[in-house]
Write a protein that binds this DNA or RNA. Structure first.
Lengths: 120, 120
DNA sequence: CGGGATCCAAACGGATACTG
DNA sequence: CAGTATCCGTTTGGATCCCG
């Protein structure tokens, strides 16, 4: 019986993991969030900031982010029209994920560098 | 000057983040690691365990994991030949990333469910 | 059992042009 | 500026067969 419960917990964790990866695991998703966090709110500004992203892809990512509650698309219908992407507070919930990933990435890089040195 | 340093730190964080996502951000990577953690060591066992993965993809993921130091491919050349994938201790370094992702995934799911209820 | 080789359809994504 | 539409090469990945 214990085993069943534990196995179900495991399955739930996997499901949660998949959910998380589905939402934020895209190639550009976190990059866009960080750029928004960094204060870049306009479409072309974002594209200039995020090296290598195309307009089509950026457009898609922003739509996903909007749908997932990370971002609000704010349109100021003046002249000229100004569109801004505003990062919502829900994005803050990613803080732990982000820092864990950054920390691990830094650690992994050091390991890779050391591994390369040993090959010399 | 302060600004330059901070901007560089930010760029480094982004690079670390990209490194991390490059290594573990694949659609199946973490799933395979978890299955290995769960004690599944054989190729076909892994494929049966990880729902939806094809042999080709699993093969590719395992090679990547091996190259990144997560896994060791152990071949017992007896009769019959037995191939086992052994999870190395380096995989433990992912613990924080994993739990952060699981936690966030669970939280996000609850939010999504609540959001749907409001639409009723 | 543990894969590699091949074929093929679908998805991805870049470049360019175009629109309001 | 903020995108969308179209075209089109590249990549991905499933299905299947095959081999040691």
């Amino acid at each position: 019986m214990e085993k069943t419960i534990s196995a179900e917990k495991c399955r739930n964790s996997i499901k949660a993991l998949e959910d998380a990866m589905y939402v934020i695991g895209g190639k550009w998703t976190l990059r866009v969030i960080i750029a928004l966090k960094d204060g870049h709110t306009r479409f072309n500004d974002l594209q200039r900031t995020i090296d290598g992203i195309s307009a089509k892809v950026l457009s898609g990512v922003l739509k996903d982010l909007e749908q997932n509650g990370f971002v609000r698309r704010k349109v100021d219908t003046g002249i000229p029209v100004v569109v801004e992407y505003e990062l919502l507070s829900y994005a803050d919930t990613l803080q732990d994920v982000l820092s864990a990933l950054v920390l691990w990435g830094e650690m992994h890089r050091e390991k890779v560098i050391k591994g390369e040195e040993e090959l010399v």
